[in-house]
Amino acid sequence: MAPILEVKNLTKHFGKFQAVTGVSLTVEKGELTALIGPNGAGKTTFYNMLSGKFPPTSGKIFFEGRDITGAPPHKIARMGIGRSFQITNIFTSMTVMENILSALIAHHGAGTSFFAPARKNKKLLEEGSKILESLGLTPYADMPTTQLSYGDKRLVEIGIVLANSPRLVLLDEPTAGMTPEETERMIELIHHLADETDTTFFLTEHDMKVVFSVSKKIYVLHQGSLLAAGSPEEIQKNPEVRKAYLGGEIHA
């Protein structure tokens, strides 16, 4: 079967600075894949190209066999790729349910309904409640997100992403800034979603414990280029990877 995501020779220059150079990789459907690398390795730049924030300087991106290179974010989202951000990115002053409703409306292309009250749409509310329940956010449905804990805000963002029913989800450091308990909860959630739904996850992460516990396949990015690829065991043993991380961080 064709991979859900195939990237060929992806390159991004910012002026003279080469953020990403000739990266090729594939993500197989249903195989939780991670992209790791030291700070400044180009992970977020790579994600920004995949999700359409800016076009690559050269190279191609194929999603389910379709060329999506250079498409704008809203089109890529509508095709079935969702993403979360390193810094929590939600609709701040709205309630938790309204955050999810917006994404549901976008997903169903229901934004051209100008007259029926959005907050009374039974079908959307039902779908929204299911998502909130799966995230354990049901008690906060009508609370403005400003009143939530940091970890719960991150969950709201996952909820927004899930509301789009994406087939591929890019998670940019999903546990960044979380307490150990929150991290634990997030790992459990990712496991659960990867197992229970048809969604394929592709994540970047700093926390090696998270990476080795959830991913089946790992790509290592170093100074904008691909350094290694393989199973968690292979990556842990790889001497070049150990060198890139200065022997420090790479232990489970």
Partner: peptide, 17 residues
């Protein structure tokens, strides 16, 4: 509601489709 989400966070809105 979509207008308000654009007001609140244009980037998140775009990446939500």
């Amino acid at each position: 509601l979509i207008l308000v989400s654009i007001r609140e966070n244009k980037e998140r809105a775009a990446f939500t489709g």
